[in-house]
Each structure stands twice: as C-alpha cells, then as structure tokens.
Design a protein around this nucleic acid. Structure first.
Lengths: 226, 226
DNA sequence: CGGTGTGTAAACGGCGTGTGAACCCGTCAA
DNA sequence: TTGACGGGTTCACACGCCGTTTACACACCG
C-alpha cells in the first residue's frame, strides 16, 4: 500500500501512534510544497492533515490536495474543538475529520471507513444545478451541454458558489475561502472574475450567478428553499 | 426539514443537547419496529443511532435502515470507545460515527458534513413569524409563499424587526441599530422604508409592521403568544 | 519573447436611498 | 362644531454609492 501523506513533520505523537497501531504506512511532510516533491511514484494513498498546530497551513494543504487535477482522496482532517467552526464552508476539502484528543482506534476506524467508502466510489464527482454541470474529476465545466474553457481561478470560484446554491457570499468571504488569503486590497477582483465567468457562460446563462447588491454574489436564483 | 430518526428513547441528554444546539428537528423511537411506524409522511431526513446503551438493538436498527428498498441516508452512529472494534464489517450500515464523550459542536459538524455530502446542503437559517419567512443565507424574504424583491436596507430593517417580534423600536433606535450611525437629521427615513416594506408585502400583510403612535414601530401584534 | 492567466485602476451608469414637502387623519381645546 | 396642531403617510426627485465594464500592468510559462 502506498503511504499516507501526513502533515506536519514531526507528526504529533498521538497521531503517529494511532497510525502505527492501525498499520498504515505514512510519511510526514513539513511544508505544503513538499506534498508534491515527496510524492512516491505511485502517488499517495490518502492524506491525514493535522490542524492543531499551524491551522492556516493545514487548511491550505487540504485545499491544495483537492485542487489537483485528480483530487487526492481520502483526506482526513485532524483538529481540536477550537477549530470546529472552521469546518464550515470547507466541506469539500476533506472527507472526514477527527477531534483530538481521540482514542487511537477511532483514527484507525475512520481510515478504514474512508478507504471502504472510496473503494466503493460513493463519492459524488458531479455537481449539477440546472444547465450547469461541474465534473470534479476532470476539472471541467459545462453549461447546457457546451463545455466551458475555464481558467483555474474561474473554475474554483464557480465550484465554490455552485456547491452551495442560493447562499450569498460577501467578496471578503470569497477572497478568503476561494483565493485563500485574507482580505488584502482588491474586492474588485471578485467582480471581474464573476464578469468573466458570466461572459463564458453566455448571455442566456449569465444569470446563474446573481448579484445581491450591497452584499455579494450567489449561485442560482434562490428558488425559495424552505 | 423532516426530523431525524433517533434511537433510543429517551435519547441520552448529551445527544439531545447537541441536536437542539445544532438546530435539527428530531424524534426518538424506543424500539426498532417504531422506525417504520412513527415515520413522518415525508420520511426521515436521516438517522442518529446511539449504541452506548443497547448496542445489539442499535446495530440491528442501523442495518434495518440500510436494508430498506431505498436505504435511509445519512446514518450517524453514536458509540463509545468500547464499541470501536464493532464497526468493522459493519461499514455499510452507517455513513459516519461519533465517539462519546464528544463536544456538542462535533455532532453538529458531522451532521452538516453528512448532509453536504448527500447533496442536501445545510439547513438554511430561517426567521419565521406567521406568513413571513426570512432566509438569512440567501438574503431572501417571502410572505405567504411569495418571494419579495427587497433592497438591501429594506431587508436589513425587516430582519431587525422580525428578529424581535412584538418589541417596539423608536426611529432613533432603528436608525442607530439598522443604519448604524447616530441620529443625524432625518427620522422620516425610517417612515419611508417602512412604507416601502408594507407596499411590497402587499395590502393584506401590511399590518405585519405596526405603527405605535408617538413611539415607533414594531413587528407583529403585541398580543402574540411567545 | 509572445501568450495566457490574474489582479488593479478608472470611467461609466443605474438605481437604491435620503430628504423635503404636501397630504391625511385623529385629538383636543375653544 | 370647528380650527389648530402633532404626527404619520405618501410622493417626487436628486445625490451618490456600488456594480459593471473596459483597459492595462504584471507574473508566469512555453
């Protein structure tokens, strides 16, 4: 079995112990960039990302793993209770999570369940809303059957919005969750990317992304969600 | 939202608290057979099966739920560390599990992640009073099922009033709390916005915002049962 | 060096918003 | 009964915010 990608290096003893005990091979990386550099020839079998230390880096890593051409699965996020709220709006960056402190066997059980699930291919790889279809595997988007030639950031933005149809997001939220850094000057950046997306979707589907004046943007005219 | 099927009855206090806190409606059943008998017309939205008591019955229930013609999803299994090993070979009977004791928010986070995975999204945050429904996520308002096209300030004002039904607010208070600045000239501003709101709600629902002469405005009538 | 992807600056335009004034209506005193 | 008065409602209009749009600068990669 290929090793699990683990972060950070050194791995907290509690985690290392649990992995040994469950019998999973693993390899810890100290920095986000090493996830690619240290990757074995046959790839990682999955990832265990621990956010109890540098949460910022951990979230960045899990996001990067899912932004790959073929997203890495499964990703198990390790957090403490203080970070429970951070999970919101990051649902697509991990497949399961575990809250420390935890019984070593719990981590083993979660990994077992994850591998069982991914083996069955239970994961939905499509996001479909109205005429829009996003293929999470191939990184492609299509509207009314026509494939869109989206750039990286355009795809990321569209995927984020379409994964939560109806919900309104401020530019600040989009900047921090899609771009991944804190608000840092240009809120106009979001506007321009929305405009480019609308242009590529075509006149007749531009309304799929709606403007909520003085607030932000949302995907889909929220046909009333009760 | 349809209630979650919960087992057993009564539910452990720790679980009941977590469900309330996360805002999920739920209904506990005492025996396995009741899962069918007590099922609401629109079905269960999922299940939370607790195995800390009668583990035998709990596992039987989760298996029965998945053996249905249309298997019930998601199923969240609640266990203690003693039952971790029992999960093996039961992988297909549940979608996720939680080990007690756990932080109440962990249970909420797991449910949120499960509902996101199964494509139903989170339950929207709603303010509901009589015929009026405010969706805080989509920035939408509806009266008697009809969606209102409100502007930003109209929505903010209505949300402020509807969040505290029955309570009367002076124009000065509204200006400072909704608009955010100190009283600074125009109290007429509030009147005009109230009028626009009443107009958009329609003749038959205009009374939802009441005028309290010489004082201010309030949402809903004072004679309301809290 | 050309091409593409991405972020920033600036001009434009629509409409949300605040304001003043006219209108309406209940209350109260003469 | 009537006129004055206080306060709420309604209307119309102009200002300015905010999103759109266009153009450009820069980084990255072949």
């Amino acid at each position: 079995m290929e090793p699990l990608l683990c972060f950070p290096d050194p791995l907290p003893a509690e985690l290392a112990l649990a992995l040994e005990r469950a019998g999973y091979p693993w390899k810890a990386v100290a920095r986000v960039e090493h996830a690619d550099a240290d990757e074995p020839e046959d790839g990682w079998s999955g990832a265990v990302v621990c956010a109890t230390g540098d949460a910022q880096a951990a979230f960045a890593l899990s996001r990067a793993l899912r932004a790959r051409e073929v997203p890495l699965r499964p990703v198990l996020l390790v957090i403490d209770t203080a970070h429970l709220a951070e999970l919101e709006l990051r649902e697509d960056h991990f497949d399961d999570f575990v809250v420390l402190p935890a019984h070593p066997d719990e981590i083993g059980a979660r990994l077992a369940h994850l591998f069982w699930r991914t083996g069955r291919g239970l994961r939905p790889e499509l996001i479909e809303h109205g005429p829009l279809v996003l293929n999470l595997e191939t990184y492609q988007a299509a509207v009314a059957g026509r494939v869109l030639d989206l750039t990286y950031m355009e795809y990321e933005l569209l995927r984020f919005l379409a994964a939560r149809p109806g919900k309104v997001f401020t530019r600040e939220t989009l900047l921090s969750r899609v771009w991944g850094y804190e608000y840092y000057g240009g809120a106009r950046t979001v506007d321009v990317h929305v405009r480019r997306l609308r242009a590529k979707m075509g006149e007749e589907h531009a309304h799929l992304i709606e403007t909520v004046r003085s607030v932000g943007y949302r995907f889909g005219q929220g046909g009333w969600a009760p």
